[in-house]
Design a protein around this nucleic acid. Structure first.
Lengths: 256, 256
DNA sequence: TTTTTCATTTCAATAATCAGAAATATAAAA
DNA sequence: TTTTATATTTCTGATTATTGAAATGAAAAA
């Protein structure tokens, strides 16, 4: 049983966009095909709770800051952040690079946690950004561990749009990358999404043994020597394994 | 007219916390004093929209990732971000430090935009973190431009809790800082919230001439020489003025 | 000033939701 | 296996929300 008024209230929230950030009652009424008294009641409720904000001058509405509050709570309730914060912090200090944790969400990579090296900087325990899986190290790390059926499905329905000259745009290239990731235990992103940004990422598994999240090390490409890559990837894989264990994952012992 | 079911749906969302990240129907029913069928309908609606997530195994509910999506939209619809992105990016590249834009929200500082120097790093056009006003450069920059009545009200109802050994904990010290900020045109934060973090921040005014937001430059304290401080604070004040003008603020000409 | 626009409120009929109690379903625990 | 706990569904009268048309209020435009 879906609650009509709740659905409509959520519909109203998603009417606001980059290009239409401010809406009036009549706008909303027209967009949703609802009467003005109905819209007014819903909008007033959302406004009284801080999910909408009414500009006193124009009387137009925009999204309210209470949305940020619930977003912060979402972030702190994510299990991966709760168990990943410690290992990520230690990895940041050990490597002196930015560390991120990300999860797979609707075929994209959603960053859930950011740590910068040195205790003098803030832990961004906050969500975002969202990045296509095929051109991020974490995306490839996760994809490489998914069943081949899922990979086929992914490449079939995902246009490999180039973001930089180095973005992978063919299925063959992508599959090669995934194979390499399976061998190395980590995936790479060599300026495939942002120029100058080089990342490596290792998958994190949950108690079902499914690839659930990924931890990544980001740095300027010029700073990663081959030797450094060996050291850092090793530390990163250990951090990933530690988090996987915290999530209840036990690596299968090799059968005799 | 407040819509009961919408209010209840929002109540449900705020039941989830750091310490209680997963709740069942009975839990929610008890916490809100509602019957189970009522709660179930609301929860199902929120789940179908992605605002809640039900774990298939435990059947418990937690906050859903759709909350992040609406948070992203909130961020991109904020006028201050829309007009501040350009100047902030240029300031980051000019100074080679992290730049942030923040607004005053319920006596706290809410960061709405982060830019890191160099095009190789990502613009965090995302909300958070939230920091007490009295121990952040942006908070002091904004507070310094508020009417003295508002300042009195602020210090009266805000406990000056220490975060570091250098946090300002007396009203007198804070007022001295505000006076200094008014003279300099920017405020400072010398490791008052996080050890090793030094920031300066200049206020941004809206078309009413009210202090509305602040732009800050963050860096390790050891990297700020006096000379550098002069240059950077000047560039920062110019960026702040540019954003203020974009918001419709015209600086009063000095009367003859 | 008058006109226009749109937010807000009113009202009564209609539709949707809720409470309360109880039944059924489902999964974990004993 | 049975027991236990809890999610989910069912039902009906009571409560609450929505519609549609119209009126009022309040600010901006002409």
């Amino acid at each position: 049983m879906a609650i009509q008024s709740v659905n409509r209230a959520l519909d109203i929230l998603f009417l606001f966009t980059n290009t239409k950030p401010r809406l009036g009652i009549t706008d909303i009424s027209n967009l949703l095909g609802l009467t003005k008294p109905t819209v007014h009641g819903l909008v007033q409720t959302l406004t009284s709770r801080g999910f909408l904000y009414q500009d006193p001058e124009s009387r137009k509405y925009s999204l309210g800051l209470k949305i940020h509050e619930i977003g912060t709570i979402l972030c702190s309730t994510l299990k991966i952040n709760q168990v990943g914060a410690g290992p990520a912090r230690r990895l940041a200090d050990a490597t002196n690079y930015m560390i991120r944790i990300a999860i797979w969400d609707r075929d994209e990579i959603l960053v859930t946690f950011n740590v910068f090296p040195g205790s003098q900087t803030i832990n961004y325990q906050q969500l975002g950004p969202r990045v296509p899986a095929y051109c991020s190290a974490s995306g490839k790390a996760l994809l490489s561990m998914m069943p081949s059926k899922k990979i086929e499905q992914y490449v079939k329905q995902t246009p490999l749009k180039p973001y930089t000259p180095k973005t992978i745009t063919t299925v063959k290239q992508l599959k090669n990358e995934l194979e390499k990731a399976r061998i190395n235990g980590y995936a790479e992103d060599r300026e495939e999404y942002l120029p100058g940004l080089f990342c490596i990422s290792a998958p994190i598994f949950n108690q079902n043994g499914s690839p659930y999240a990924a931890i990544s090390v980001s740095g300027g490409f010029q700073f990663f020597s081959n030797e450094e890559l060996d050291t850092i990837s090793q530390q990163m894989k250990e951090a990933a394994a530690e988090i996987s264990r915290s999530l209840g994952y036990f690596h299968q012992a090799t059968p005799i």
